[in-house]
């Protein structure tokens, strides 16, 4: 616990010079990259279209795929897989992490085993999943769930283990135990580390999505990547990469909004 802190009013909010100024600053570097990309492909002509297509041809590729509805199908199916895998994996991680973090018996019994499974690089499960589940939707979602599970499990488990024992004792001294102690002291105390775990898990989910879709799929952004590579469509390849970046950033930002709300209430 901190002992002494000077009393002071909250620091004055920095006056915003521009509405959405932060977004503009954040967009500066991506715009610069696109500018340089356009420069080296168009006016300077340093690369051929098969090496590095111009930004406008990537946009054209996107518009082309938009026509048949294929682009939405790819994006939709990938987002669905990520969300499902992330939800299942994170839920399992929260449950098992809470159980092992709160119960010494469960921890003694299960932690070595979970630790051993965590030591297996997650992609090593791929052949087994292929054999047992197949690489249909179930197999893909399962692989993503495995990727999302461990960051959440680890953060919840270690956070619950390290809740300030002084606070827990104070809670108990004032008559709190069981579920009331959990909701009043232990869970709020772990909100910040749990959210870092969730964000890490979301990033892992996208990673495992691409891994699953590269292996075997007939739609999705990973499929778009491998199909474009086979057809020499570098424009579509770049489009898929840009889309992955944008989607990853959007989902992370959404989780960030929820995190800020939670931290306002709990931390």
């Amino acid at each position: 616990m901190t002992t002494t802190l000077a009393t002071q009013s909250a620091p004055p909010r920095r006056a915003k010079s521009l509405p959405g100024g932060r977004i503009l600053i954040g967009a500066a570097v991506p715009l610069l990259i696109v500018g340089v990309w356009w420069l080296v492909t168009g006016p300077l002509n340093l690369f051929t279209a098969t090496q590095l297509p111009a930004p406008q041809s990537v946009i054209e590729a996107g518009v082309g795929l938009l026509d048949g509805g294929a682009l939405f199908a790819h994006v939709g199916v990938s987002v669905q897989r990520v969300l499902l895998g992330f939800l299942f994996g994170a839920a399992a991680g929260l449950l098992l992490g809470s159980l092992l973090g709160l119960s010494r018996i469960a921890d003694g019994l299960l932690h070595p085993t979970v630790g051993a499974f965590r030591a297996v690089p997650s992609l090593a499960w791929v052949p087994l999943i292929l054999l047992w589940v197949g690489i249909g939707e179930d197999g893909k979602v399962l692989l993503i769930a495995i990727g999302a599970f461990f960051p959440v499990f680890t953060s919840v488990h270690s956070a619950l283990r390290h809740v300030d024992p002084h606070l827990v004792e104070a809670g108990r001294a004032f008559g709190y135990h069981g579920t009331r102690l959990l909701t009043a002291v232990q869970l709020p105390a772990v909100v910040p580390p749990v959210f870092s775990g969730l964000r890490l898990a979301l990033a892992q989910s996208w990673l495992f999505l691409v891994a699953a879709e590269l292996l075997a799929s007939s739609e999705g952004l990973g499929f778009l990547l491998i199909e474009s590579q086979n057809n020499g469509r570098v424009d579509r390849l770049l489009l898929a990469i840009v889309l992955l970046a944008i989607l990853g950033k959007i989902t992370d930002a959404l989780l960030g909004v929820i995190e800020r709300k939670a931290l306002k209430t709990w931390a």
């Binding site: 004792e169 008559g175 931390a267």
Partner: peptide, 18 residues
């Protein structure tokens, strides 16, 4: 155990920071 007829003021304030 944790007798409700008593109340403890600890050496550290032990306030919940949130």
């Amino acid at each position: 155990r944790y007798d409700e007829r008593t109340a403890v003021g600890f050496q550290e304030p032990r306030l919940l920071p949130w």
